[in-house]
Design a protein around this nucleic acid. Structure first.
Lengths: 231, 231
DNA sequence: TAGATTGTTAATCGATTAACAATC
DNA sequence: TAGATTGTTAATCGATTAACAATC
């Protein structure tokens, strides 16, 4: 996938400067997962129509999304599964040996640390920190939990791309500040607070409470639909 | 909040039949959280502008979102925090004693079971199931883990609104089928698969892998922005 | 070759933002 | 009362869907 001339004779993708809409960004990992599943079953090719059916979206959308990053298919054929998967991995920054630290060794932190699914995309948790003397010194997923006071010095000595926050809400902002001070580039936040960070730092939050409330709302709506008048 | 006549003399909210856009649904829990924080600090009133600032959206959007459910504010004053919070809780179906079962007693399942944050909205996990003989019989969050083969009989005897799936991906669909057979109304799915369920069943999925990939992508974009040409 | 399917441009649809009368 | 802020309608913006020439 190098630079390609288009009709006008101009280069496309001279610089990938276009901002990708968040709606598209959220679909990229889904494409990746579907492609990975197909590749695991040794499926060779896939059409935008097939991918779209799986995701309950329009085939045009699949093609439009992918075309933001390049031309990966062939007319009349579709997409080669392995090739497209590989391109998506590159787009998503997978398999580049991304390093993480985890702060908060409670139940959720332990679950994340032991969740093996990330390793295969090249993500590695390098250290775990906690504040509680009862937790410090424990072994979680093969790592000895360190005192959170060592966090900033650790990051100075061992630069890491991503920090995971699995602490209670009240201390999450403080931890975020320390991670930022330590030069972290992204935060994966599981605490139910909106973190304030500099613009240069990316935050992805997983708010379990909000997720459950969403489900609760949908349930209630369904119920009212059936209770209410039938059209 | 009962029925109110509008200018045309027609009742509004005769039947809450309008479908709420998913974009709005996803913001409702955020409003709820912000209001709960304000209520905890004994703040009495809040304006759409203040809420909007917190959420980095437009004040119009806050008012428009809320107006889908009723008129909760007062001109020139804003919204009473406690009143609006209470209305949001009703809208979201919180504090109605929702019962859940959890399938999968691994690290993630244990974290969910021990995550105390849901209890305060009236969600209670009534039983935990697993397939592994090593896990069956263990006590997790005060509950003895049952054999997953008891799942369907259990649900027949003890109706439950929501099933949580914390199993590995390959068995998630099978578990979903059993939950549906047991009359469950909603599924909170942590397994990285798209579940096939009847239209009557709501699914909310939390895909940790997709979330981490999203973060990875944003990081890569940031990096390319700074590496690439400055404007 | 004929059939299929891409990449892309144009048309549609829906969500966000702006504006303002109503009124606390 | 004057100032502030809602609820709602209209205008704008962006995302999704449709259409089709290009071509494998």
């Amino acid at each position: 996938m190098s630079m390609v001339r288009n009709k006008g004779g101009k280069y496309k993708h001279e610089y990938k400067q276009k901002a990708i809409p968040l709606t598209v960004v959220k679909r990229l990992p889904v494409y990746q997962r579907l492609l990975a599943e197909l590749a695991a079953r040794d499926v060779e090719r896939v059409s935008s129509r097939e991918l779209a059916t799986q995701m309950k979206i329009d085939p045009s959308q699949v093609r439009q999304d992918l075309s933001l990053f390049g031309s990966f298919g062939q007319q009349g054929y579709g997409y080669r599964v392995r090739y497209l998967l590989n391109e998506l991995n590159k787009i998503l920054g997978l398999n580049t040996g991304t390093k993480l630290v985890l702060v908060g060794g409670g139940h959720l932190g332990r679950a994340i640390a032991n969740y093996g699914n990330f390793v295969k995309w090249g993500f590695t948790i390098k250290a775990i920190f906690d504040r509680d003397p009862q937790v410090i010194g424990l072994t979680i997923a093969g790592l000895t939990v360190r005192d959170v006071r060592e966090l900033t010095p650790y990051l100075r000595a061992e630069p890491v791309e991503i920090g995971i926050i699995c602490t209670p809400a009240p201390v999450a902002q403080e931890v975020a500040d320390q991670l930022v001070a330590g030069g972290i580039k992204g935060i994966w936040n599981f605490a139910p607070v909106a973190l304030r960070v500099p613009e240069t730092v990316c935050v992805e939050h997983v708010h379990l409470g909000e997720s459950l409330m969403t489900l609760s709302f949908m349930l209630k709506q369904r119920q009212e639909e059936s209770t209410g008048p039938k059209k």
